[in-house]
């Protein structure tokens, strides 16, 4: 009997590897599947952009409502808290929207990449 370790280095000791004909057919099918998935992803892109836009619009609306409400609450509690409204400088909602968009772009990789791609 040969050395066991030497025998274990022989592929036949492990399993029958699929024939070249088989694996070539499988790889062709895999490429076809990948192409189909790519095409599907491209078709979905406009929908994804619209849903992203709606999501960010909803976030901005929420901020727009939330910040004046906070400011108003702060105004009421003003003396105790030191007037949030004054500290914030009662910003224009568009300034807040701009800040929120900048943060969203900064922390969302697809948006950041798209922006950098547009700039670059």
């Amino acid at each position: 009997m040969k050395d066991l370790e030497q025998l274990l280095r022989d592929p036949r000791a492990h399993a029958d590897a699929p024939s070249e004909e088989s694996w070539r057919a499988w790889s062709d099918e895999a490429i076809a599947k990948w192409n189909a998935q790519q095409a599907q992803a491209r078709q979905r892109n406009p929908l994804r952009l619209i849903s992203n836009a709606l999501f960010y619009a909803a976030v901005l609306m929420a901020l727009w409502i939330l910040f004046p409400a906070l400011a108003s609450t702060a105004e009421k509690v003003g003396e105790a808290v030191g007037s949030y409204q004054v500290w914030v400088g009662m910003p224009n909602p568009w300034v807040i929207a701009g800040i929120a968009t900048a943060i969203a772009v900064a922390i969302t990789p697809p948006l950041r990449q798209r922006l950098l791609h547009e700039i670059g």
């Binding site: 590897a17 699929p18 499988w26 099918e29 895999a30």
Partner: peptide, 26 residues
């Protein structure tokens, strides 16, 4: 693919499952 096929064939899978696993890996 030859490398992946050889590796997955050692899992002792039936032919159809082996084919699926190779394709899914790729």
């Amino acid at each position: 693919t030859p490398l992946i096929s050889a590796q997955l064939s050692r899992f002792r899978l039936p032919h159809d499952l082996l084919q699926d696993a190779v394709q899914e890996t790729l």
